[in-house]
Design a protein around this nucleic acid. Structure first.
Lengths: 155, 155
DNA sequence: TCCGAGTTGCGTATCAGACGCATCTAGGAA
DNA sequence: TTCCTAGATGCGTCTGATACGCAACTCGGA
């Protein structure tokens, strides 16, 4: 896939996600404000799993009056609607993810960069039965940790 | 393995980890204060991946004068010495782990509970080659997300 | 036993995230 | 198209987690 085609595919995917948001929001009876659209579009356009503050700064470029509050509230609303997921076990300093398809993560232990990767083989991995005793299972994914190329260069 | 035998095995494992700390600390030339020993022992005795504040409260029971500061400083020092690892991509609200052996995590999406589980099969999983382009690979583990038994009961 | 580099705990600063409330607006009703 | 109100926004403020400077303290080698 060429540079141009990849870019086009990404654009189409963003629009698909936005359309899904529009449908789900209508269904749930929540209003589609400009702020919400911009916040979701920002998140849906990246694979970098930004935190709330990063999204805030990006949206602020196009919409100088947004407040960080609205970003937080919108992200958790999107989460409650099932439109985004979160990374990490904590509710503090959470990172968000608008990619609902099965996928896996590469995490840089130094700078915190996170990138998605796909793998049919890993999607099919079998969780041991005993894990079911701990609670229900929503999903399972692989987390690969390492030092990203940029941090290796900075060593 | 019986209740009693399991308890004994856990105690031996904690002592093994403490002995490792003593050796590494001497090698690195850092002092082994009572605070550091208690903090490490607390972390080495649990599989619950506590955050700094949880460790602080536990250590405080036995040592009322410890400060939360010392807990933070000690945890990151242990991390720098390679004696503990962290969960999650962020440096904020991090959770710590003194189990250096390969293992996997079950994470409750509601309450943040984390439990370890082992699996020979999952330890052996193959990461796709393309991931190597993102950076070096330190380790890979599976993260299973779900609703833990306690939270299911509270629904 | 003594001494100094390293460590601790306190006070305080900073930053992420959340909440109350007055103001504003999306979007259905007329 | 205009009107109206439930729901959303943004500001000021609060809380809670984490970090830092510094004076007092302590580990561990001489």
């Amino acid at each position: 896939m060429g540079e141009r085609a990849a870019h086009e595919a990404a654009r189409v995917e963003v629009e698909r996600r936005v359309a899904h948001l529009v449908a789900v929001a209508k269904e749930a009876g929540v209003k589609l404000t400009h702020q919400r659209l911009e916040i979701f579009r920002e998140l849906a356009s990246t694979e970098a799993h930004p935190d709330a503050d990063t999204i805030f700064r990006a949206v602020q470029q196009r919409m100088p009056t947004v407040s960080i509050d609205t970003v937080y509230r919108t992200l958790w609303m999107l989460h409650d609607l099932g439109l985004v997921t979160t990374l990490g076990p904590s509710r503090h300093a959470v990172r968000f993810d608008a990619n609902l398809a099965p996928h896996h993560h590469y995490v840089c232990v130094r700078c915190g960069l996170v990138r998605d990767f796909d793998s049919e083989a890993l999607n099919a991995l079998q969780v041991p039965d005993k894990v079911g005793q701990l609670g229900s299972i929503i999903d399972a994914h692989v987390e690969v940790r390492g030092l990203c190329a940029a941090c290796q260069g900075a060593e």
